[in-house]
């Protein structure tokens, strides 16, 4: 848990330093903002995890001496099949085609996406 936090902090620091050096050398806005955004993205994730207390949790995968039995607790259930991802993506594809070929396709896209949303919600409730 803590290792990935350190990696993200290092990436954020790299982005901040590189962006600042780049800005001081060039005053070029596009690249500077991109590098600072590279710093901001991992920083946001680490900050969120820290606030939620994620770095204080002790997980069996972080214990170098943990045996296989330590992982007995339930990770959650994993579905093996679902038709909704496919329907959602077909809806999105039709939506993109609507932009290119004509807005008439848009209702079909919205209907498919809505159907997939309802289906997914019902399925994950069990």
């Amino acid at each position: 848990m803590r290792t990935w936090g350190r990696i993200f902090v290092a990436y954020a620091a790299f982005g901040a330093v590189a962006g600042t050096v780049y800005w001081l050398r060039t005053n070029e806005p596009a690249g500077s903002v991109l590098l600072w955004a590279m710093a901001a993205m991992p920083a946001i994730v680490v900050a969120f995890a820290a606030v939620r207390g994620a770095f204080r949790a002790r997980l069996p995968e972080d214990d170098p001496e943990a045996g296989p039995a330590a992982g007995e607790e339930e990770l959650g259930s994993f579905p093996t099949a679902s038709v909704w991802p496919l329907i959602a993506v077909v809806g999105a594809l039709v939506g993109l085609a609507a932009i290119v070929y004509g807005w008439i396709l848009l209702p079909i896209s919205v209907a498919l996406l809505g159907w997939a949303l309802v289906g997914l919600a019902r399925e994950s409730r069990g």
Partner: peptide
């Protein structure tokens, strides 16, 4: 890593179909 599946299996399926439809376009 000794896990039973990805963390979000349905999202994973959606990623694949998104890629496949992008390829189609």
């Amino acid at each position: 890593i000794g896990a039973p599946d990805m963390a979000f299996p349905r999202l994973n399926a959606a990623s694949y179909w998104t890629y496949a439809s992008g390829g189609l376009l």
